[in-house]
Design a protein around this nucleic acid. Structure first.
Length: 487
DNA sequence: GGAGGTTACATCCAAGTTCT
DNA sequence: AGAACTTGGATGTAACCTCC
């Protein structure tokens, strides 16, 4: 909540006169007209109310702040802190950003200058520096005469910037504990105000409640979420609910929404939304569920084996294999048999690719250290990634040597059989992949030619028996044949 | 009845930008 | 750093309302 310098002074006077002070007296002390004091009182009222206090205006008495003494003390602290802090340039810019993101309406440079105890020129200078950063988020900094400064752009971009600000300033592991601490303490002593301000971006109690909801749901999720994603999701939801309560609309690409509606994550997102609707008595629009789904999809999955095999798309599995092969060649250590590595890589790549595709950003706090300690390996992996994920990725390359790929110990049959052993059901996605491979008909590949010849002579069953050692009555074989019919 | 709160409106000043 | 310029917001006056 933004408080102007004069509003602050009025608050000071009101707090200093618990028995009441007339508008006339306030006006005299501030050297303005009574009219002006009345106007400013309108701005003071919500501030007072946000501390569970009341502003009472009575004829014969004047204006008075009434309520609990403790709350009054907190308000006084708040006012005091606003007028007595100094900041480093970085902190100051953060403060300006917070003020702008929070207010939603234009803010005067002078007010900012007053609040931060610097001159207007400094603020203007800060704004110049901030402009680029703001634009990177798809937002724009509007500066107009007689109008003030304002951050314009989509609601989604604003939210994203807020949560990024939070992430820039806090280690994710410390975030929640800091949050909880701050809820309990109610900030009575002079803590770092930038921290406090940042925490102020999201309603702490809301955040706490959301976290409890998700914590409770965590058990029922088909996967677990890594800490960083978990917190990102909680923060996102807190900001989302705040905005929904304020009645601000959010846009989500309709086509995209249609595309993700069939995913498991969407189902989970719906459940989360429903829970939150109950708790906060709000209606969560479908667009918002779309965003929650994106977060879930982007979450760094630490997963149960079954979920991964079922859901991981074949293309990613192929890429992972490709990458392992590339790195194995370069370091001359064969890693292709390292199944846990393969599995972990898929688990990592799925959300990572998703994040990259949707420009969600990835941070790894250890990146610098990894580059330093394993520079050679890092370089090789970098090359590998470029090689594997370059645009030249074609069907032919992915599907080449189909007979080898159909081997009972290779990338398709082996995990599919394992899945069947563990869960007693057939992994449909993998079956689909195998079906696709069986349809690979390309003259330039000797194995492809041979495979098609075998199918012609002894059918799909024959091919599966010959190359994959898969009996024709095996449920996997049945499923593969079924999938081929759909293609 | 009067002390004090509220509202409408015309005016003027100062804010922010631009240029040097 | 400072002067010129444009424009919109803050201000004060005055009339009105409300409650002790």
């Amino acid at each position: 909540m933004y408080i102007s310098a004069r509003e602050r002074k009025i608050l000071d006077l009101l707090l200093a006169n618990p028995k009441g002070i007339t508008v006339g007296d306030v006006a005299k002390q501030l050297d303005v007209s009574e009219r002006t004091v009345h106007r400013d009182l309108k701005g003071v009222e919500p501030v007072v109310e946000s501390y569970d206090l009341q502003l009472i205006k009575k004829a014969g008495v004047g204006i008075q702040i009434v309520g609990e003494e403790e709350k009054k003390r907190q308000l006084q602290m708040h006012v005091f802190r606003l007028s007595h802090t100094e900041y480093t340039p970085e902190e100051r810019q953060t403060m300006i950003l917070i003020a702008l993101l929070e207010s939603g309406e234009p803010v005067k440079l002078v007010s900012l200058a007053n609040d931060l105890n610097v001159t207007v020129a400094t603020i203007s200078n800060d704004l110049d520096k901030m402009e680029e950063k703001v634009e990177k988020h798809g937002l724009s900094l509007i500066r107009k005469r007689g109008y003030g400064v304002e951050i314009c752009g989509s609601e989604a971009a604003k939210r994203k910037m807020m949560s990024e600000l939070l992430f820039d300033h806090f280690d994710e592991s410390q975030f929640l504990s800091l949050m909880k601490e701050s809820i309990q303490k109610k900030s009575t002593d002079l803590v770092n105000t930038v921290t406090e301000k940042l925490l102020g971006l999201v309603d702490k109690e809301k955040l706490f409640m959301i976290e409890q909801q998700i914590e409770a749901m965590k058990e029922n999720l088909p996967f677990t979420i890594a800490d960083s994603s978990y917190i990102a999701l909680v923060i996102h939801l807190a900001l989302a609910i705040e905005r929904i309560v304020q009645g601000e609309a959010i846009h989500f690409d309709a086509q995209h929404l249609q595309a993700i509606r069939a995913t498991k994550e969407y189902e989970t997102a719906e459940k989360i939304a429903k829970k939150l609707e109950e708790v906060f008595h709000v209606v969560i629009p479908e667009e918002e569920i779309g965003y929650i789904t994106m977060h879930l999809m982007g979450a760094k999955l630490r997963t149960r084996r079954g979920y991964m095999l079922e859901e991981a798309s074949l293309a990613i599995a192929m890429k992972a294999q490709e990458l392992i092969r590339f790195v194995s060649d370069k370091i001359e250590i064969d890693l292709t048999d390292d199944y846990p590595l393969y599995e972990d890589l898929i688990v990592h790549l799925k959300p990572a690719l998703y994040r990259i595709q949707h420009h969600m950003g990835i941070t790894n706090p250890l990146l610098h250290k990894i580059m330093q300690d394993y520079s050679e390996l890092f370089h090789i992996v970098q090359q590998g990634v470029q090689h594997v994920f370059s645009e030249t990725d074609e069907v032919i390359r992915v599907a080449r040597s189909p007979i080898r790929k159909l081997g009972s110990n290779d990338r398709l049959i082996r995990p599919a059989m394992k899945y069947y052993e563990c869960f007693g059901e057939v992994p449909t996605s993998l079956a689909k992949g195998i079906a696709a491979l069986l349809l690979f008909d390309y003259e330039g590949d000797a194995e492809a030619v041979q495979l098609q010849q075998t199918i012609k002579e002894s059918g799909v069953e024959g091919a599966l028996e010959t190359y994959a050692k898969l009996p024709s009555d095996h449920p996997l074989a049945v499923e593969i044949k079924k999938q081929m019919l759909y293609m």
